[in-house]
Amino acid sequence: MAAKQSTTQPNCRCWVWFRGGLGVESEWISGFYGAPSILGGIRIERGDYVACRVADWRVVFEEPADINVGPVIPEDAEWKLVPTDPR
């Protein structure tokens, strides 16, 4: 059975901002496909990553000029949105 579609447009190649951690720099990560979700935010997918919804400020659909220069992070920002798909 095919998965329910949760987007309003086809998936497009995108880059997702990941916050660094212990010994890991913050950076834009490529290889994701995403589209706006009907629940808000962007639903992202990648073969080695669990599909989820993230805040739209974390996603760009054009390659960043510098993968180490991040987006403007809103105060009290949500990084991951729940649920991923409508029920």
Rank of each mutant, 00 (worst) to 15 (best):
D76I: 00
S37F: 00
D66L: 14
E75H: 07
K80F: 01
C14I: 09
S6H: 09
A77R: 11
P10F: 12
A77K: 11
A65F: 08
P36S: 08
R87V: 11
V82L: 05
I44G: 05
T7R: 13
G23C: 02
C12T: 11
D76Y: 00
D85L: 15
V59W: 02
D76L: 04
E45P: 05
C52A: 10
R87C: 07
V24L: 10
I42N: 01
T84I: 07
A51E: 00
P64K: 15
N11H: 15
T84R: 14
E25S: 14
E45K: 15
E25P: 06
E75L: 12
D76M: 05
Q9I: 11
G34C: 09
A3V: 09
V59T: 02
P10T: 10
Q9D: 10
A77V: 09
L39N: 01
L22M: 09
G21S: 10
E75F: 00
P36M: 05
R53C: 09
I42F: 01
Y33F: 13
V59N: 03
E25L: 13
G70E: 01
G21W: 01
I38V: 15
S37C: 04
V16T: 04
I44H: 04
T7H: 08
P36F: 02
P10M: 11
T84A: 13
R87H: 07
I38Q: 14
S6V: 09
A2V: 11
R19C: 02
V59F: 01
C52N: 06
W28V: 09
A2H: 10
V59M: 06
M1F: 10
D85K: 15
P74E: 01
F61H: 06
G21V: 03
L39I: 05
E27Y: 04
E63Y: 10
S6N: 13
K80S: 05
V54A: 02
W79D: 09
P64F: 11
D76C: 03
W28N: 08
C52H: 03
A77I: 06
F18L: 14
T84S: 11
S26L: 02
A77H: 03
I73K: 15
S26K: 13
V50H: 07
R13I: 12
I73M: 10
C14P: 06
V54S: 01
A3D: 01
I38A: 10
V54Q: 02
A2D: 02
S6I: 06
K4S: 10
I73N: 05
G20N: 06
P83E: 00
G31V: 07
A2W: 08
P83F: 00
P74R: 14
I67G: 00
V54K: 03
N11A: 15
I42P: 00
D56P: 03
F32L: 06
V24E: 08
Y33G: 04
R58K: 14
P83T: 06
G47P: 03
D76H: 07
W28E: 01
Y49S: 11
W79M: 11
E45F: 14
V60H: 06
V54M: 03
W17Y: 03
D48A: 11
W57L: 13
A51T: 14
L39G: 06
S26C: 04
E45R: 15
A51I: 10
G31Q: 08
G40I: 07
G23P: 00
A51N: 12
I44R: 12
W28M: 12
I67F: 11
C12N: 12
V60W: 07
T7P: 03
V16W: 01
L22Y: 08
M1D: 00
